[in-house]
Design a binder for these strands. Structure first.
Ligand SMILES: [Zn+2]
Length: 544
DNA sequence: CGAATTTGACCTGCGC
DNA sequence: GCGCAGGTCAAATTCG
């Protein structure tokens, strides 16, 4: 569609507000891109909603990296003021100009001192960021390990008494080391560490691992070959045509084929945009009219790497066409860019929750697992996660469309099976703040490279704590000479500082699948998302 | 002209 | 076995 390409992207930092405020005028014809009656103001249409934006993050990291370089060498005044390096360059340039022409040396020195101070502040901020990132990384690993162990314990306990043992085994999977002495601990550790590029892979592998002794053996044998193994699993999931290869074994072990499929993670978000950008490149390969839904369901597959089995379905909620439901399936068989990592992290964490929580979901709404995994110490979560063990595939739904309060009172998903249960789900808080960009302008996405970018203005102090806000103000003042960069960096810093460490990592999504020019290396370690992040502290508003 | 999208045909699983 | 529904393929079409 032509009009599709005219749509713009948005970067959301806080779904609670943004998704609702998503300004859109989408001239799409069909429901898929259809535009609900509201929000038809004269703002540019959205091409794609970016829930896991990383480009902005990349930009930020580029800025930081260049800042580092600038620190190392003498700043010049040549660079683009919008660039992070100019934070320093600008000042130095200004210093030269004012001091060199008609200002006394004293003033020049003052300015130089000020510049030095800014340098120092930059350094501090960078080190803080690095420190936070490192801490978060380690926490992430620990959390995931704990999650897996928890899942395993649940599985072990439930499988003994539960009549749905097979289902649990298929969907819930603990660490192989606990369960299977044959599997070396290192392997578990490795998976538990959740290489950002394959969070879901680990989960899936574990799932498949569990299915049958034969499969377990097969996987154990291939443990040393991660990629092959991943591909294998992925393929077995991906195309029905490939299934027959594995089916005989499955049949022998009395395992229904569908159970082999991976957990699904469904994201419900209020969005007028036809897509949510999650950092991956997707190619549409089909569209169907789903029963009971006037809006077509679109099928996409990941094209970031040949043979990547990851697919997603995008569909509008029949009950509220303003809600976009994106369902992810499968695991990427390739390294992921930071943008995609946000998604992968979120979905993998969700999947982990699903795998651990599904064992108890049928017992009631308590979902103790989830509560344990994502303690209620989190003051508030802005979304809900829904586990559905009775669905064809184990599915977890992340609802980004409602506040926890309203969710509790008016949970609208009547279409969910009785066994479905809900609980506050902080993941999205993470993905929102870490994955949704840090206030940078969006880059055009893969399908609309030439689009004008939507500037995103941060409103950082709004939800910041006192000290955070003040720090933010300090930084802001220091770099106020460049509004663009100020906005971007301020949002980033406020997010980093105001949010838990995880938000500082590279798992924010960059809106689009094409962020090749952004290198996060060095500065922002690529880290998986963390479920135990508090609410995002940064709110953005679109400024189109 | 290559790549992405569209869209009807086809395949598979499932319930009757 | 048949029909339905979900999902995928691939030729045709559109786009950049
Ligand atoms: Zn992929």
């Amino acid at each position: 569609m032509d009009h599709n390409r005219r749509c713009h992207e948005l970067t959301f930092l806080h779904s609670g507000n943004f998704l609702r405020e998503a300004p859109v005028s989408t001239p799409m014809a069909d429901c898929h891109a259809g535009n609900p009656s509201h929000n038809t103001i004269n703002r540019p249409p959205i091409r794609e909603v970016d829930f896991f934006s990383v480009n902005s993050r990349d930009k930020f990291d580029d800025d930081i990296r260049e800042m580092k370089m600038s620190n190392g060498s003498r700043p010049t005044s040549k660079s683009d003021p919008r660039d992070g390096s100019n934070l320093l360059s600008l000042h130095s340039g200004m210093t030269r100009t004012t001091g060199g022409e008609d200002k006394p040396d004293a003033e020049l020195r003052v300015l130089e001192v000020e510049l030095e101070r800014l340098h120092e502040e930059n350094r501090k901020l960078r080190s803080m960021l690095d420190h936070i990132s490192r801490n978060y990384s380690s926490l992430q690993s620990q959390l995931l390990i704990a999650m897996q162990k928890q899942a395993h314990h649940q599985e072990v306990m439930k499988s003994r008494s539960s009549p749905i043992k097979s289902t649990q085994q298929l969907t819930d999977r603990g660490p192989p080391d606990v369960n299977d002495p044959k599997v070396p601990d290192e392997k578990t550790t490795g998976e538990a560490s959740f290489s950002p590029t394959s969070n879901m892979e680990a989960l899936s592998k574990e799932s498949d691992h569990l299915i049958t002794p034969r499969n377990k053996f097969r996987q154990t044998c291939s443990l040393n070959n991660e990629d092959d193994n991943v591909d294998q699993m992925s393929q077995s999931w991906g195309s029905p045509r490939n299934d027959p290869i594995l089916k005989p074994e499955q049949a022998k072990d009395d395992q229904p084929e569908p159970a082999f499929r991976k957990a699904r993670v469904s994201v419900r978000a209020r969005s007028e945009a036809p897509l949510i950008s999650d950092g991956c490149q997707w190619r549409k390969y089909g569209q169907k009219m789903a029963k009971g839904n006037p809006c077509p369901r679109a099928y996409y597959r990941c094209t970031m790497a040949a043979g990547c089995p990851v697919r997603k379905q995008v569909q509008r909620c029949p009950e509220d066409k303003g809600i976009l439901i994106t369902t992810y399936e499968g695991n990427h068989s390739h390294p992921l860019p930071p943008a995609a990592m946000a998604t992968a992290s979120t979905t993998s964490a969700a999947a982990a929750m699903l795998l651990s929580g599904s064992t108890t979901s049928k017992e009631g709404p308590a979902n103790n697992n989830s509560a344990l995994l994502f303690p209620s110490s989190i003051p508030y979560a802005s979304t809900m996660a829904t586990l559905s063990a009775s669905a064809p595939f184990p599915t977890i739904t992340l609802d980004l469309t409602q506040t926890p309060n309203s969710l509790m009172q008016t949970f609208p998903r009547t279409h969910l099976p009785p066994s479905t249960s809900t609980f506050p789900f902080p993941l999205h808080g993470y993905s929102q703040l870490a994955g949704l960009g840090l206030g940078h302008t969006m880059y055009g996405d893969g399908s609309s490279p030439g689009h004008p970018k939507l500037p995103v203005l941060p409103v950082p102090a709004m939800q910041l704590g006192q000290h955070q806000a003040s720090l933010f103000e300090t930084v802001k003042a220091a770099i106020a000479s460049d509004p663009n960069f100020t906005a971007a960096l301020a949002a980033a810093i406020s997010t980093v500082i105001g949010a838990p460490p995880g938000s500082a990592d590279g798992s924010n999504g960059g809106g689009n699948g094409r962020n090749e020019n952004s290198t996060m290396a060095g500065i922002a370690p690529v880290l998986p998302g963390s479920p135990h992040l508090p609410q995002s502290c940064t709110t953005l508003s679109t400024n189109s």
